[in-house]
Design a protein around this nucleic acid. Structure first.
Length: 587
RNA sequence: GGGGUCGUGGUGCAGCCUGGUUAGCACACUGGACUGUCAAUCCAGAGGCCGCGGGUUCAAGUCCCGUCGACCCCGCCA
């Protein structure tokens, strides 16, 4: 019998077994030697007793951390009182009769034990060792189950997995492309796809009807904790489905993934919030629904109030947004000053705080102190209790809401209001189709130029483009955007108008994605889809906040790989073959 | 492009504010002891140009300037 190091139990006592794995820890008692043998599945204690295996015992004396071993022996129940309840295999041990040292190991550059924070540059340089650490290994076993669950769910729903090219052409707008020079067409470049967007739409024209792909995407932008230059999407596109038929399919897949991977039953349907509603209530277009702390609008209270700053803001078309933080009245003056600084850091001109203390309200502005009518009205509006903290920001709507939205998220974390292991997905709908670019003085597609307007807003595209809402949707989970998509334009007339509004001329459009436009003229069905960030989804499921922990070989924040030392210079011969010359960097 | 935190034996940290003997601790490592440990224990030992460069000073791990790297954030990411 050749079990893994994670599966032997009390009932296996007496079995002859062969185990292979790494020597995790060794405890040498001179007479007895214990070695914890580790593989992917777990750890099993092996006992080397000179009385029953003199040669093996001698060999075990030479074993060091991470030596690779094959041991042959007998499973035995541990002597009474020596079982280890911490280990799944803790009832038994393997009495080793024979051991082969399959390989030795140098002392490691860092500890594999849990709970020791090692500099990430070191971890990445020795990623193969980092990946041996149970915490990281667990993430990849989980990620594997996510792949399986996604494929099973989508196949069951009639989806077909199709691959699309990595070597493709650069398309305008969106993120910066990674370019690949062509040897055969000198001076021409492929671009690595930011997503298979155009191809998946073309697959709909091709009649695939339901397509998906777990696919790598590339964006040459600056990195973050949740952004890598190459990342993985679950890319989906369907024909003949409008938004309300499509979203439940995606929802079903997410529910099945959570069930299969974590045994968690997410309640369906996922709540749906309008884009305006999400920002008004949560101060974010990716609201975290794991806790309350909803924002309130108090503009009307201040329209004619004696507090000039707020009254003026309201008269200028702005709003007064308020956040009630239950039980946070105990925050120190210093904490509150810190919050005001944070608010200013987010762009607010200022923030008023009110502490509903026992001896009467205290506030950063005199008008709210003591038993003022204004404070009473405000407290009533917000349902505030003694001991609560109220934060108020007056400004233009999006800014005031965003400022408090950030504080809301920060305070929830600091005050411990976010339950562990809670998952609250929601849909955010009805995004604007377009947003005005102050820099370029033109409309830009908020999602992409192929996103369809909502049916009832189509005519506005000719009169008031800024008011057109899109058939676009984001899937948000615990305050993180994990996916976004839209129903696409499949009619030539609408697409034409869209390009006009975006200031993309017929010639330019033809030049840049003529192949898609042409395809749309040959019986394109109504279609739409979504792209889900697999790395972010897996990170959330794994309970880590960095996607680097769920990517086997991630890049550093400067886009380098300490393991391979990529990117690296190439030989002059390689450059010459491509017709490229590298210019010296300017000072 | 901008802001912040950090950089000290292999790893994690202290020392830096307030410059001054031999740079300290834990783990890992090496040798020894030990037949019921599981973070084994006990004894002994080795291992450092304090990221790099420059400056101030009688004297710099410590103060100043620059630079490199890691991380976090803003910009950016349709």
């Amino acid at each position: 019998m050749s079990p893994t190091c994670g599966e032997l139990r009390g009932g296996d006592a007496g079995a002859a077994v062969t185990l292979m794995g790494w020597a995790f820890r060794r405890r040498d008692h001179g007479g007895l030697i214990f070695v914890d043998l580790r593989d992917r599945e777990g750890v099993t204690q092996c006992v080397f007793n000179p009385a029953t295996g003199a040669e093996a015992h001698a060999a075990a004396g030479r074993v060091r951390g991470e030596y690779v071993l094959a041991v042959r022996g007998t499973v035995q129940a541990r002597p009474p009182g020596t079982a280890n309840p911490q280990l799944p295999t803790g009832e038994i041990e393997v009495a080793v009769g024979e051991v082969r040292i399959l390989n030795e190991s140098k002392p490691l550059p860092f500890h594999l034990e849990e709970g020791v924070e090692v500099d990430e540059a070191v971890r990445l340089r020795y990623r193969y060792l980092d990946l041996r650490r149970p915490r990281l290994l667990r993430n990849f076993l989980l990620r594997d189950r996510v792949y399986q669950a996604v494929r099973a769910s989508l196949h069951a729903a009639g989806f077909v997995e199709v691959e699309t090219p990595f070597l493709t052409r650069s398309t305008p707008e969106g993120a910066r492309d990674f370019l690949v020079p062509s040897r055969l067409a000198r001076g021409h470049f492929y671009a690595l796809p930011q997503s298979p967007q155009l191809f998946k739409q073309i697959l709909m024209v091709a009649g695939l009807e339901r397509y998906f792909q777990i696919v790598r995407c590339f964006r040459d932008e600056d990195l973050r904790r949740d952004r890598q230059p190459e990342f993985t999407q679950i890319d989906i596109e369907t024909a003949f489905l409008d938004r309300d038929d499509f979203l439940p399919i995606v929802e079903g897949m997410i529910v099945e993934v959570f069930q299969a991977v974590r045994g968690i039953a997410l309640p369906r349907p996922f709540p749906r919030l309008g884009w305006d509603e999400a920002r008004a209530r949560y101060g974010s277009d990716k609201p975290d629904l794991r806790f309350g702390l909803e924002l309130a609008d108090c503009s009307d209270l201040f329209r004619d109030a004696a507090f000039e700053v707020f009254a003026q803001a309201v008269h200028a078309g702005g709003v007064v947004k308020a956040l009630r933080v239950p039980g946070a009245g105990g925050l120190s003056r210093r904490d509150l000053d810190g919050l005001v600084e944070e608010a200013k850091g987010s762009g607010a001109r200022g923030m008023v705080w009110v502490r509903l203390a026992e001896g009467g309200p205290q506030a950063s502005v005199a008008l709210f102190r003591g038993d003022s009518a204004l404070t009473r009205e405000l407290a009533a509006r917000l349902g505030a209790q003694p001991g609560d903290l109220l934060l108020l920001v007056a400004d233009a709507f999006p800014l005031a809401a965003e400022v408090l939205g950030r504080l809301r998220a920060g305070l929830a974390a600091r005050l411990g209001l976010i339950p562990a292991d809670l998952f609250r997905p929601c849909w955010v709908l009805d995004f604007p189709l377009l947003e005005w670019s102050e820099e370029e003085k033109r409309w830009q597609a908020m999602h992409h130029p192929f996103t369809a307007p909502r049916d009832e807003d189509v005519e506005l595209l000719w009169s008031e483009p800024g008011r057109v809402r899109a058939k676009a949707y984001d899937l948000v989970l615990n305050g993180q955007e994990i996916g976004g998509g839209s129903i696409r334009i499949h009619e030539r007339r609408l697409q034409q108008r869209m390009f006009e509004v975006l200031g993309i001329g017929e010639t330019e459009a033809r030049a840049k994605f003529g192949f898609l436009l042409e395809a749309l003229e040959y019986g394109a069905p109504p279609h739409g889809g979504i792209a889900l960030g697999l790395d972010r989804l897996v990170a959330i499921l794994a309970g880590t906040d960095s996607i680097r922990d769920v990517i086997a070989f991630p890049k550093t924040q400067k886009g380098t790989c300490p393991l391979t030392e990529a990117p690296a210079p190439v030989s002059p011969a390689q450059l010459a073959e491509l017709g490229l010359r590298v210019e010296a960097e300017e000072e």
